[in-house]
């Protein structure tokens, strides 16, 4: 475990905490895309199929449980919590899951490291994670007022992905035989999708004004 990887995981954890904080304390999920949250729940379910079969480390198992548990509870809150669900902007969050999931599934069936169920699901989870943020970014652009917690949540998610790239570079240089094209390529695409958001996030931070994306 190198510093980039640890910081990446902690940033990911912080993003989830920020989102849960918003849901728990403000009882609001305004500006958060349920579609993206549902896609994340699918991503982690498909990726962590090995949770019961392959033990890697205590840290690894705990983090998997946390990401699975939190992704499903966020979806539950947004769908069923009687106060939280009222703040969900259903009419603005119109992205269709199937348009993202189907191409990712086809791609996972075609391009994978091994043609087994677990392996294809694992590959699918990476392709899907790469594009899972799109409904959230679309919603963000439609929302005129982006509150601080939503902005921070997306910033932390993007930072987590960027740190994973540093982790991969570090591991490639320091570990023999460390090559993993599927996470690398999908991770790169995923991080690039945040580029635009980062630009406006830093601009608003530098000028000390409220974050707003151009229409």
């Amino acid at each position: 475990m190198n510093i980039f990887r640890l910081t990446a995981d902690m940033t990911h954890l912080m993003s989830v905490i920020v989102l849960l904080l918003k849901i728990h304390t403000i009882k609001s999920c305004a500006g958060i895309s349920l579609k993206t949250q549902e896609l994340y729940a699918i991503v982690f379910t498909c990726r962590y199929l090995d949770i019961f079969t392959d033990f890697i480390s205590f840290y690894n198992t705990i983090m998997k449980v946390i990401f699975l548990w939190t992704s499903f509870s966020i979806v539950w809150y947004m769908r069923y919590h009687k106060i939280v669900r009222r703040s969900y902007d259903k009419d603005q969050d119109t992205f269709r899951h199937v348009f993202l999931m189907l191409p990712c599934l086809v791609l996972a069936l075609l391009i994978n490291e091994r043609f087994t169920f677990k392996e294809v699901m694992w590959t699918f989870s990476f392709y899907l994670e790469a594009v899972a943020i799109l409904p959230q970014l679309v919603l963000l652009q439609r929302t005129r007022n982006i509150d601080n917690l939503t902005g921070q949540y997306i910033f932390l998610l993007g930072a987590y992905r960027a740190l994973y790239i540093l982790n991969w570079i570090y591991r490639y240089v320091t570990e023999p035989n460390y090559v993993h094209w599927i996470p690398w390529m999908s991770g790169l695409v995923q991080t690039l999708l945040y580029g635009d958001f980062f630009y406006y996030y830093f601009l608003s931070w530098k000028n000390n004004v409220k974050l707003q994306l151009p229409a």
């Binding site: 990911h12 890697i56 990401f67």
Partner: peptide
């Protein structure tokens, strides 16, 4: 084994 060894990331 080679593939498995690398699946230690989240």
């Amino acid at each position: 084994e080679f593939l498995h060894q690398q699946k230690d990331e989240l």
